[in-house]
Simulated scan of single mutants.
Amino acid sequence: MTTSPYPIGTPGEPWGDREKAAWRQRQQVVRSYAGDVATAIDRLRDRFDVEQYGTLDYRADGRYPLFAVRSRDWDEALPVMLVTGGVHGYETSGVQGALQFLQQRAADYTGRANLLVVPCVSPWGYERVQRWNADAIDPNRSFRVDSPAQESAALVALLAPLRDRVLMHIDLHETTDSDESEFRPALAARDGKPFEPGGIPDGFYLVDDSVEPQPAFQQAVIDAVAQVTHIAPADDNGEIIGSPVVAPGVIRYPLASLGLCAGITDARYTTTTEVYPDSPTATPAQCNAAQVAAVCAAIGFALSHAG
């Protein structure tokens, strides 16, 4: 846990351009989007339609093509199931879980649903194991028209024609120990606010939509994931990350008004997964499998309640 001042900025003062530039200079490439993600997507082209829906242009840091993977035999009569991962680039199982779903389970829904999967919304963040984009903006607070985040604006544009056609949207995330040691202190420093230490839930949980909650849908996903990894318990206040637990492993946010990815469409069934990769009892393979289990359960529930 960080208790000393964040190394960038002046406590109590929001960052300006100089501080954001200093923060950006600290971010180093530690893995390859082209090698880890784009290559894996290329291998899917014989079974799916792969679309480049945009390009991130971060000047000296490079240009990043953005890819969406669609069912090859798209049928306008079938419901649309949307899967997104890597909105926060450091949340590895969101990216790898989406790819693993495409590789291993997507064929199960041929002729039953149209699948649209965006495995890595934030390639710059993926390479740097970073929550924000290169402009120190959190994409997952920026999914709205005229978004200040390139990543969010590109996804909003991709999904605009399908906004009222999507039946289910599951957005794949992680909550990590680095949320408390790095990302929350950085957020407080950027916004000129004091850092308030919190806790990291030990286990998997979901974020439902507080405006239009779907408790049975969330429960179906929790039940499936519980076969793969443990579900996060409530803390002593009956909360997870400061929000009341409304059912085992489930909290609620107003998804659309907060600019969260899961609120980007008018889907009836929406959820955000939160895997805990730092648990001593969870391996990377288990985290990826939990994401796949969540996706399959979400699609299965939506299909069985599509009428």
Rank of each mutant, 00 (worst) to 15 (best):
A189S: 10
T55S: 15
R131F: 02
Y64C: 14
A298C: 04
L102T: 01
R70A: 11
A160E: 13
D266S: 09
R43G: 15
R70H: 14
I8P: 02
A157I: 12
P280R: 12
R24F: 03
E51T: 08
D209E: 04
D266R: 13
G242H: 07
L206T: 01
L159C: 15
Q103Y: 02
N237K: 15
A68N: 03
A22T: 15
V166F: 03
V246F: 05
I231K: 01
S71P: 07
A106M: 03
A306W: 04
P185H: 00
F67N: 13
G85Y: 05
V37S: 07
T55D: 12
A220E: 11
N288C: 13
F183C: 02
I170Y: 00
Y6W: 10
N140V: 08
D278A: 12
T229S: 11
Q28Y: 08
A160D: 13
S257E: 11
T272V: 13
K20W: 01
N288K: 05
A216Q: 14
V95H: 03
V228C: 07
S147K: 01
S257M: 00
Q103E: 07
A293L: 12
Q96P: 01
D36E: 07
I240S: 03
V95P: 06
F217L: 07
T39W: 12
L258T: 06
Q150G: 06
A38I: 12
E151Y: 14
E180I: 04
P284E: 14
D179C: 06
Q52V: 04
G94A: 04
T175W: 08
A298S: 09
A149Q: 08
T2R: 14
V117F: 10
T176V: 12
N133H: 05
H173V: 01
D49H: 07
G300P: 04
V50Y: 06
L115R: 11
A220S: 11
Q286R: 15
F67H: 13
D177L: 14
F67R: 13
P244D: 11
V275Y: 14
P280T: 15
A224G: 03
N114D: 11
W74Q: 01
T281G: 09
L78T: 08
P139G: 15
G259D: 02
S147F: 02
S178L: 14
L206H: 03
L116G: 09
G9D: 04
Y269T: 09
Y58L: 08
P215D: 00
R163C: 02
A157Y: 04
I299H: 03
D36M: 08
L159P: 10
